[in-house]
Amino acid sequence: MNRERMIWTGLLVVAGLWLLGRALWVGNGVVYVQDLGDVTVSSDAWEAVTETARPSIFRTAGLWLAALFTLAIFSFLYRDNPFYKIAEAVVVGVSAAYWMVVGVWATMVPNLFGKLFPATIKAWAMPGLSPVRDPFSWLYLVPLVLGILLMMRLAPKGQWLARWPLAFIIGTTAGIRLVGFIHADFLSQINSTVLPLVAMESGRFDLAGTLGNLIVVIGVFACLTYFFFSIEHKGVVGGVSRLGIWFLMITFGAAFGYTVMGRIALLAIRLEFLFDDWLWLIDPTGARPPM
């Protein structure tokens, strides 16, 4: 344990010294702004060359913090540690508040209060709103009341009242989904599977098309057979459902391949952030003048 700690301390000291040297010599990870008197706008290292942009301490500190947060999360790969836990705690708090703020400013103010009290909202926060109340605006009292009832979940008493809005949410979700899924995922899918088993391409036999259609039709049929658990999987049914399993395995293989692909892209953008925005080791977009 002691040896491990020594190695890590050594590594961190070396990395820290390198970073310090780089920050002093290159000045990496600086974010620039341009002060135009009435507004301060985002700027870049190019403008800094002309001496019209200045480093923003606020934003530069932010960028370094973002880099440290990124490293703090990565540190979990080695072992759980306080840095990771702090980062995790921050993200939970910030995201919950973020969604709340968005919910208030993007929906509750314009779509709820803006409908109920248009003139007030216009004068206060949304000058673009029409001050005239819709004749049916009283309908919006319903979601307001349901919303207040929903908040009863947080109250020590009367939590059962929160079931009403919940019931509404569940009911509408069920209603929306029932139709949507039957239409798009059932009927349309059956429709798309009714394919010609001998495909013709401008009057000539189309081998690839025929093969493709056959595979899709047989595959869907075989998989559905496999899903019908109520029938005993024996004999022909057993054979077909086994074919169905093979189809599903290929499907899962494809899903795995695609998933891997996606995950790696997510890692790549984080490393690009560290190397490009923070450390200035690479500059693929020409964001900075050559050193």
């Binding site: 798009a184 899918q189 499907t251 899903a255 695609y258 998933t259 692909m261 996606g262 892209a265 790549a268």
Partner: peptide, 22 residues
């Protein structure tokens, strides 16, 4: 990438084109 394979059944009737992952 996670969604792409799941959306293939919609192609081409309901979804004429799709870009899958990076």
């Amino acid at each position: 990438g996670v969604q792409a394979p799941l959306l293939y059944p919609y192609i081409p009737d309901q979804l004429p084109g799709l870009l899958g992952a990076i």
